[in-house]
Design a binder for these strands. Structure first.
Lengths: 194, 194
DNA sequence: CCTAAAAGTTAATCTAGTTTAACTTCTTTT
DNA sequence: AAAAGAAGTTAAACTAGATTAACTTTTAGG
């Protein structure tokens, strides 16, 4: 598996020299999972910062009543880790499951600080994508408070048209914070309107 | 106003030399606002990354129906900016209003990259607090989906006991994503239980 | 190609939280 | 100390979305 998608993604934010690219490639591991497998399980410690080269994952939380809540649906060019567990090295609160055969490019927690020190541009890169991630997360909180379920669904469809095709409806419902039954009702309504 | 609280906060994450501290102090501006004033208004561009030395703010969004939604309540030692607007230099979606007389230590967007270049430890520092911020934001999304309003209120009280005293109830209700009437009902219920 | 399991639908009933509106404190200003 | 505005409370009527349960359709494995 080629790490080209990762390099291309990084180059959008910082410009690496060929040497730096080589160093990067040496400090990254490729890891593959089959559809259905877990890249991380609630309770385990998250040891990797993982970029999706190919495939698709869901990050979800199982609450005290046994109900699943999807926080993120990730496809190619997304980072899919429990960042809370990764930085604290405490047990993860989230599960990450592959929804298709998936290949990750992974930084290991034990060497990432060393990588930042050797290639400060990579620390800059992560600083930048964390800024974007935090801004996006705050906007999501707002959407959850200020939009109805129907509006959230329409926003999701419009913003991630490619994701809807690849993922079962009941997972999209969970991502939107509603039941699959209610999403079904929303879709019927929308079909009637059109 | 002394920037000591900021220095102490930074030193928790990275260790600055006296020289670096001096450089930092030269690239920071102190800005004061009175209770009720806006440090940022929806539609303006956020030019500063602001740390609260003293005081207290709310960051909120006004939706199409004119309703206010509070995303963050910030006190001393918190960063209070619209990070989405700050990094893109596009109009802010959020307002930041001071709920008490407030003093900020501010980095200006035009010089912050220069500061990162001069003191890479500061970029490291921001990378770390962004990681924490993103992890916290994800956990908040989960709480909003998996807890009832009553549970969210109890969590808030327990996690930020000092904030509840300083801020009107109706703002706490907005932060929790409920109406002030319903928070009132929850409090009555809790009082009865005890 | 068959069959079982997974995914999606429909509809009735129920509930957490909203809306509206009237009322009661509590603060602040004069 | 009075007045007025801001903050908080109460209760009745309402609604978005959950729950339950029975059903249909799609998918994938043997």
């Amino acid at each position: 598996m080629d790490i080209q998608p990762l390099l291309a993604y990084i180059q959008k934010h910082v410009t690496l020299t060929p040497e730096e690219e080589r160093y990067l490639a040496e400090h990254i591991t490729i890891r593959r999972y089959l559809k259905g497998q877990y890249a991380l399980q609630q309770g385990d410690v998250c040891k990797h910062s993982s970029f999706i080269l190919k495939g698709c994952t869901r990050m979800f939380y199982v609450d005290d009543e046994g109900q699943e809540h999807i926080i993120m649906l990730c496809v190619e060019d997304w980072w899919s880790s429990d960042i809370g567990s990764f930085i604290s090295q405490e047990p993860a609160q989230f599960n990450i499951q592959c929804l298709e055969d998936t290949a990750f490019a992974q930084f290991h927690v034990d060497t990432i600080e060393e990588v930042y020190a050797a290639v400060p541009k990579l620390e800059r890169f992560f600083r930048k994508i964390l800024e974007r991630g935090l801004a996006a997360s705050q906007k999501r909180i707002i959407r959850n408070f200020s939009m109805t379920a129907k509006e959230r669904y329409l926003y999701f469809k419009e913003t991630y048209p490619m994701i809807e095709q690849r993922i079962p409806q009941y997972m999209i419902a969970s991502y939107l914070g509603i039941t699959k039954e209610f999403l079904s009702k929303i879709k019927r309504q929308l079909a009637k309107e059109a």
